[in-house]
Design a protein around this nucleic acid. Structure first.
Lengths: 209, 209
DNA sequence: ATAAAAACTTACTATTTGGTCAGCAAATAT
DNA sequence: ATATTTGCTGACCAAATAGTAAGTTTTTAT
């Protein structure tokens, strides 16, 4: 009972911070930034309020940390589009990754969505630099394929918006979708159904089917 | 200088209430429900705070009124799908209406989106009854067309989700889209471009082009 | 002109909330 | 063993906020 297989120090810190960020994410989604109170985060994390403020100087810092998690998720989950794949496989992979991200981390998607809806106060910089760059790069790739006659002449930027919106919808509007479909939760099949539906529709839309 | 062409009574009331609801919509979008204070709504409406609470008993009532406006908009703007139109024209009209709604009343779309993201506390009933009914009805219509061989066999419910998500995206993610496209505001052309893009893509996706 | 109703305002209050602080407890290093 | 760092906590406070109460002014009806 001496040695534990986990790391030695900074462990409590890491665990507590993780617990807090999980609780905070949920609270921010359910109540919004202002509506989520430090106390409510503490209650959900099952820690005293003062303990929350011991690990994070203030509420805004918690929110920043949550946002960073979200962006990291986005970045990792989306992967990169491989030019060698060609348009069909590239779009297939892109949709697949995005749908799975939405179903696996709906809270991240929701927090991101709320932030953008409210004017992207904390993400202006991210959008202006990273995101704009990303879109331009990928759009150029699609444009090459279009010029090569490998796919129909559709606006690449709007194509990216279409894929983003249609995939994220299943995370952000989860509640509405489940209500309409009269389900309590998503099932494993749903992910595959959505991937197939969106892939088929969009590939045909691009003249790739 | 005696008679004014406007209605006689209840005019001040109507005007003030309208001013308040406009201001409140903006505040709710920018700050969320909890973040929007009665004072901030008052400031934006250029009325004293107590005047706001004279017309609306409390903050929640303001929010309810804003939500009702939003739902009314949705209902009117979307119109109805005419079975006589056939799938092609029906989808064209549907997309057209939805995109114009998004560009003309982005705030309504945003408030609706935030409400759903946060769990649809105030819209559960609306979704369970009206919306579910609406989707089933329209889905049945599409299914008829599919069974008749008038369009490809795509899941009608997911098709509706696709149209909703892709069109609303231009309202809800306005900030992000404008940043990426490096524009300050949408222009008239943008609406037409989006309508054409989405109509083309989705019609092709349904085998209607 | 006058009465009644609607519109508006000022001052106040109870509660909530983010954040601090001073001290205690446990873990870790020497 | 002892010192030091890290983790933890209860009590407290100033500011913000939703809502009220009690009045005044303006508009409308008669």
């Amino acid at each position: 009972m001496t040695t534990s297989p986990t790391k030695k120090t900074g462990n409590i810190r890491a665990q507590s911070q993780h617990k807090i960020l999980m609780a905070a994410s949920t609270e921010f989604v359910l109540q919004g930034y202002k509506g989520a109170t430090v106390q409510s985060i503490a209650d959900r994390a099952e820690l005293p309020k003062a303990n929350i403020l011991y690990y994070f100087k203030n509420k805004e810092n918690i929110y920043h940390a949550v946002l960073e998690n979200t962006l990291e998720m986005w970045d990792k989950g989306i992967g990169d589009i491989d030019p060698a794949d060609g348009p069909k496989v590239a779009i297939e992979k892109f949709i697949d990754a995005k749908v799975r991200l939405s179903f696996n981390y709906p809270e991240s998607s929701k927090i991101y969505a709320m932030e953008i809806i409210q004017g992207a106060q904390h993400l202006k910089e991210f959008a202006r630099t990273y995101l704009r760059q990303w879109v331009r790069e990928k759009a150029k790739l699609f444009q090459h394929w279009i010029d090569n006659g490998e796919m129909l002449d559709v606006d690449p930027v709007h194509l990216i918006f279409l894929i983003w919106s249609s995939t994220q919808h299943y995370a952000d509007f989860e509640t509405q979708i489940l209500t309409i479909m009269n389900q309590a939760d998503y099932e494993d099949d749903d992910v595959e159904t959505v991937i197939k539906f969106l892939t088929d529709m969009i590939l045909r839309g691009c003249g790739l089917k």
